[in-house]
Design a protein around this nucleic acid. Structure first.
Lengths: 241, 241
DNA sequence: CGGATTATTATGTATATACATGTTCGCCCA
DNA sequence: TGGGCGAACATGTATATACATAATAATCCG
């Protein structure tokens, strides 16, 4: 789907209208032709025109009002899609050898801080992990993770000495909701030592909270040396390929 | 659309299937019932079932193969939607008074660095702006911007002394593609002075490149004091509200 | 027995049709 | 003149139908 090469009627109409909107020929607020008119214009049925407009509405390019018609919407918030890959994939895409090391693995009752991170109301057992990802000889990323054993009891029997917990978790919790916080932080003495950078060097921190259908799953904090890493996010109006 | 309250057949089927997938009842790789079977199961026509499956496929929850059927897809990349609001909206959402000041406004020919930032192959006139956004008494964000006058000649007659160029640009270039780079940086002496923070304090930097239909529009770099700001991004499987 | 051909099957796309729903406009009457 | 009622209208949703397409399964034949 959305191959770009498909020359179906649907796609032709869609990209034509999309083109008019992104080019500014049909500016925000413009009322596009009624479904029946579009059907005549592209010599198709109203159903097809309707599907295309529904598609555009879902993509956020237009807004539809009964009786009034369909209008090009104002681009309100600058949205961007951030794709967060596995650390290993990230490192390998830089064409550097990847290695992983488990620094710490503690099973304990959730502390108040843990409960806040995982958004837990009651106490529970958590697995506290610290791992270090290397790119070549240098530390690439520090991973501090909490796993909620109430929702992922299988984690207790995993030792995570060979492979990172992130990929293992994805295979355990099929679909999940996630929330990210991204900020900059001066390296503390400990972080500086671990990541082999100078004290107070700027670091990029990404915190992720993940929920599955049965509750909070994991909280993880990735700390990257800031001068060696950047996140890239992209946004294209209608497309999603 | 996607109100959650709508009880149309379409929505009921959709949320039912979505539920089975996110709950793990239908794990990744599971082949869901054929369209005709779904039609029988929900007592609807195949067209309706088809629309629902198409919808799910567009949302990325399932993959469809002719003859074989539709399968729950593996959640590959951790995607997250980053919503980047205007600085003013950001400040106001913190319930702080907002103020804006233009620091610099220079019209000049694009330097090699400018051309790199804007991805320009030929030379062109650019508008070089530096603005400072305040939250209450304190500097909130430093904005350094280049506007390509070849694509937005109207910018030349704007003085940007009263309102930030970001919002003005959105009204000029209706729909656009954008690319973001996010990284951490230690404050240089100059930045530290401007933002009223200590030298070498960690800053969160967001760079955005924007294209319209007629070429590169603008390049902007936002620098935030890192300890006072975080980006938040969210991801929910099927939903988009 | 193996490779080519054909049949079957499930999805993909498009159409005509039908009726529901929410707006808006205009008409009618107090 | 103004308020309300109803007709017209555009979209929303759903169905039955038809044919195209791609992939697999079945068959046929050398």
């Amino acid at each position: 789907m959305t191959n770009g090469k498909e020359a179906t009627l649907h796609h032709r109409i869609l990209s034509d209208i999309e083109g008019r909107i992104v080019s500014g020929e049909w500016p925000p607020g413009y009322r596009l032709p009624f479904e029946v008119d579009l059907a005549v214009q592209y010599s198709c049925s109203r159903m097809t025109a309707n599907k295309v407009l529904t598609h555009l509405a879902r993509a956020g390019l237009i807004e539809r009002r009964k009786k009034s018609g369909s209008f090009v919407s104002q681009p309100v918030t600058q949205a961007a899609v951030l794709e967060i890959h596995s650390i290993e994939a990230e490192v390998r895409s830089l064409k550097l050898p990847y290695s992983y090391r488990l620094e710490k693995r503690i099973l304990r009752e959730a502390s108040p801080v843990d409960r806040q991170h995982l958004e837990l109301s009651e106490t529970a057992s958590v697995l506290d992990l610290v791992c270090l990802h290397h790119a070549g000889e240098r530390p690439f990323c520090l991973e501090e993770r909490l796993i909620n054993l109430a929702t992922v009891p299988e984690a207790e029997s995993e030792d995570f000495s060979k492979s990172a917990p992130g990929t293992w978790l994805i295979s355990q919790i099929p679909w999940s909701t996630a929330e990210h916080r991204i900020y900059a932080l001066s390296a503390t003495a400990e972080v500086a030592k671990t990541l082999d950078i100078s004290r107070n060097a700027a670091c990029l921190v990404i915190e992720r909270r993940t929920w599955g259908s049965s509750g909070p799953v994991t909280f993880v904090r990735f700390t990257y040396p800031g001068d060696r890493h950047a996140l890239v996010a992209r946004f294209t109006p209608g497309g999603e390929s």
